[in-house]
Amino acid sequence: MTTFNPLYLKVYQSLLNQIKSGTLKHGEKVPSEKELAEQFEVSRITSKKALDLLSEEHYIERIQGKGSFVTYAGTGTDAAPPAERKSQDRKLIGFILPGFDESYGMDLVKGIEKHCSDYGFTVLFKMSYGKKEIEERAVNEFLDIGAEGLIVFPVHGEHVNNKLLELVSRNFPVVLIDRFIKGIPASFVCTDHQKAAGELTAHLFDLGHKEIGFLSPPPDGTTAIEERIVGFQLAHSEYGVKLNREYILTEIKNSMPIHSAGDPDIFKEDILKLDSYFAKHKNLTAVAACEHSIAELAVERLRAAGRKVPEDISVVCFDSPGNGRIHFTHIKQDEWTISRNAVNLLMEKMSDHKFAVQHVFVPHKIVEGETEKPMHRVMY
């Protein structure tokens, strides 16, 4: 778990309280970095960061050689922070997600826009393309424009987005969807990934399969992937089937659809990994893929090796577009309900900053497609 040093936030919050209460009035000089460092017994780097944050939010103005001065004079006045005035005029919500297509994400985008609109808010939208630096830059841009709250579908990765962590620590309204981030105590809305993966694996067991593979990206602290792996493992235990850990491949890095433009080098690496995996495990009768894009690539590589789906091997996954080239048996997540719950939680947080952190799991279902075939029925 990532540790987070909140010292500068203590300095920031103390000054913010003084500014909002009128103890530090509009135009008044704020204590210097040195004075604040001595008062709070922190380093000057820490006090500088607190002042920089207040400046970013337009509560103070920093003038080189003269010091920092309060520019805020209470809400409803011309001297109110520009970010607050913008959000009051336009009522903005920021929404960030790695990407979307017909398999998953499109209804999330539609739902977030619809439910925010019902509350009178306009949605600022940004795709991170799975890159942490783009996600963090989007957070900063939305705050600068005047977003009053954020809904974030976090990217995969073990490194915490420090800007999100800072916002949550300051009690800024943030709701996560699809997964939560370890170390960030924010409300989140998602599918119960462990339960869903367990049910998908159990579905294959019920069809008579025992030699089942599992394909996913590296977990890297990403809770959704970790939970799906655990669900796959627990299903083996519940059905009394011995788990072969060599059947679990967690090294597929490309999350873009195979017909979309992605990183060609990563795509080639994934092809080599899958070809090697299927050549080594020819006894597999079924494979569960953590993501639809991985299932698509798996089917392509199996066909290239001369194996038919589902005649020779069944392939199931999370998410599958109804109009896709292949209609997979899959876990269908309720994107519309996820989006509605996320917006409702955000609005509650915006109206009551003491609103407790909420964890909401939205029901899912298994949709049978054309990529599975029963083997002999087995009683466990």
Rank of each mutant, 00 (worst) to 15 (best):
K373G: 06
Q88Y: 11
F69S: 05
V230M: 09
H353I: 14
S314Q: 04
R137P: 01
R137K: 14
V362H: 05
Q18K: 15
V343R: 11
G67L: 04
N244H: 13
G105N: 01
E133M: 02
G262E: 03
G99R: 10
H376W: 08
P217Q: 13
R245V: 06
S293I: 03
E135W: 02
R179E: 07
H353M: 09
P81N: 01
Y8P: 00
E57F: 00
E348N: 06
P264I: 04
N254Y: 06
T222D: 01
Q333S: 01
E33I: 04
D107C: 08
E246Y: 04
P98L: 12
T329G: 07
A83N: 05
P217A: 14
Q39M: 03
E348Y: 07
Q358V: 03
E211G: 02
L124V: 07
Q18N: 11
G231T: 01
N341A: 15
I134L: 10
D178R: 06
F95N: 09
K365C: 12
I19D: 04
K268A: 12
H364M: 13
K308N: 14
L165K: 15
D101N: 09
H376Q: 11
H209I: 09
A80R: 15
K49F: 11
G221K: 07
F153D: 13
H236K: 13
E372P: 11
L167R: 09
E113H: 12
G130E: 08
P219I: 13
Y8E: 02
N323Y: 13
A83T: 15
N323A: 13
S339F: 07
L167I: 02
Y59P: 00
L124N: 11
E148G: 15
S32Y: 02
F142M: 15
E335L: 03
R90A: 10
A298V: 00
D275F: 02
K110W: 00
T222M: 00
F361G: 06
K132P: 04
G231W: 07
R325V: 12
T250H: 00
G94I: 05
N162V: 12
C190R: 15
I212D: 08
L7E: 15
I212L: 10
